[in-house]
Amino acid sequence: MPARRILLIGYGNPGRGDDGLGPALAAEIEALGIRGLTVDIDYQLTVDHAALIAAHDLVVFADAMVGLAVPFRLARVDDAQPTSLGSHRVSPEAALALAGLLFGQAPPGWMLAIAGKEFGEVKEGLSPSARANLGGAVAFLRGWIAAEIAKGLVPVAALHRVE
């Protein structure tokens, strides 16, 4: 059986405080050099991510989230097709839908939301709490990806919540 191709997309704006959590997580995971894992870092999801997504067997989206009651949360991305699409904001659902519509393959998608607090100001660097949440999320995702690579199959129905 060929190795499964896993894609991690970390997105957000590092110039906007905790909005940089997604890119920060992706950079830390990328530095681990996990075999079989492709890491993409961007300001936001865009339509051309559909091509990259369609070339993988599983995709993890990582983004900062405001108002999250837990440090981070991994949840299955709804495969219901959204009706709108922008360019400043393409949702994970929309990116998966585009992959399916245009390239005939929409792999299972998971959303790793990491709690952030400070988004409003133009500034670089994460808040102390966001940095702590990032550490936990990196440790968790590292193990999760290793397990997914090892077992070769992805649970598609369950909603995973990590607190």
């Binding site: 339509v47 097709q81 959204p82 009706t83 709108s84 699409l85 839908a97 585009l98 519509l101 245009l102």
Partner: peptide
């Protein structure tokens, strides 16, 4: 929306 455009003309999308 773009999804309807793609349904109408997938090559364009």
């Amino acid at each position: 929306n773009i999804f309807e455009v793609i349904r109408e003309n997938p090559e364009l999308g």
